[in-house]
């Protein structure tokens, strides 16, 4: 979220004061625009938490807008705020867009719109991926592992190289799964720095206690239409959980290959041992950073 805890809400409703609804309330930063083009130019420069739109716009519909905003801010919540009846809304070309719908004629509509926006953003009700039950605690724990401050990149680079060599695979990486993206803190065999969370396999792997193996990504219905994975030639995947001292999963140590492949039970045990090593290195550095902070 931008502006500290404020939610940035893009309001597109020509001639109507939808943005004013949010201007009157604390913790919202409304931005008004009159058409799709103007709204998208705002979204080019500003991270959008939520877009609230009338259905008919001068240069398209709300769905053109929602698609464009999500191209720029993939996790933006989209809310159709209109008096157009649902039977008059054409979703034929936008079957996968998915948005919340709030009629302007609903009782107490303005207040409920505000609640809907807040709920959609805070409770992540429009994200395109599954969430762990302890997501809030997980994200809170992740804050303590700000690896940029750890001066540990070389350690994890070395470990990734060792892992890639041990398993004879194309790419090995250490990735931390943040709220909306995965950040690769070390990556051997490719130059990946980040990916949208909804596109990563690690998003699914963190839900599982055991090592996750996807022998053939193209044969898994969860990923067979994922263009990002195809482009990166991610054909097989094995990932072991990286956990905090209290067992919270914050990321994965992963093996990627450009062909389908399997792993023996011994190899998977090794992978988990390597992941445990990463977890321990992170924990040591977190403690070191905490102590250093006190000394300063």
């Amino acid at each position: 979220m931008t502006n500290g805890d404020d939610l940035t809400v893009l309001c597109v409703d020509p001639g109507n004061p939808t943005a004013d609804i949010f201007a009157e309330r604390a913790h919202f930063t409304p931005v008004a625009a009159d058409d799709v083009a103007a709204a998208l130019s705002v979204a080019d420069d500003t991270a959008i938490d939520c877009v609230v739109s009338e259905y008919d716009l001068p240069d398209g519909t709300a769905f053109d807008l929602f698609e464009g905003v999500r191209d720029r801010s993939p996790n933006a919540a989209c809310i159709l705020y209109t008096d157009v009846d649902h039977s008059a809304i054409d979703t034929e070309q936008f079957q996968d867009t998915v948005a919340e719908f709030m009629p302007k004629s609903s009782p107490d509509a303005a207040n409920r719109l505000v609640d809907t926006v807040r709920n959609a953003v805070v409770n992540r009700t429009q994200v395109g991926f599954p969430l762990p039950d302890n997501e809030d605690e997980r994200l809170a724990a992740l804050v303590d592992y700000d690896v940029d401050d750890f001066d540990a990149v070389e350690t994890f680079d070395r470990l990734s190289e060792l892992v890639a060599s041990h398993f004879d695979i194309n790419v090995a990486f250490v990735g931390l799964v943040h709220e909306f993206e995965e950040r690769f803190i070390a990556c051997h065999g490719a130059d990946w720095e980040r990916m949208d969370r909804e596109d990563t396999i690690c998003t699914y792997a963190i839900l599982d206690e055991d090592v996750t193996v996807i022998q053939d990504v193209q044969a898994d219905p969860r990923f067979d239409h994922n263009e990002t994975l195809k482009q990166l030639d991610i054909r097989s995947y094995a990932g072991a959980n990286i956990t905090t001292a209290d067992g919270t999963v914050i990321g994965e140590l992963c093996l990627i290959h450009d062909e389908p492949r399997t792993y023996t039970a011994e190899e998977l045990t090794d992978l988990q041992l390597f992941a445990d090593e990463v977890s321990e290195q992170l924990e040591l550095r977190r403690k070191l950073a905490a102590t250093g902070g006190e000394e300063r």
């Binding site: 998915v98 919340e100 609640d115 009700t125 395109g128 969430l131 990923f223 239409h225 994922n226």
Partner: peptide, 19 residues
């Protein structure tokens, strides 16, 4: 085809029911 819209849908529906 893609799984992301399905999660958006399920989260939106269950989120509304929850609130």
């Amino acid at each position: 085809q893609e799984i992301q819209p399905l999660y958006r849908f399920l989260h939106t529906m269950t989120g509304r029911i929850r609130t």
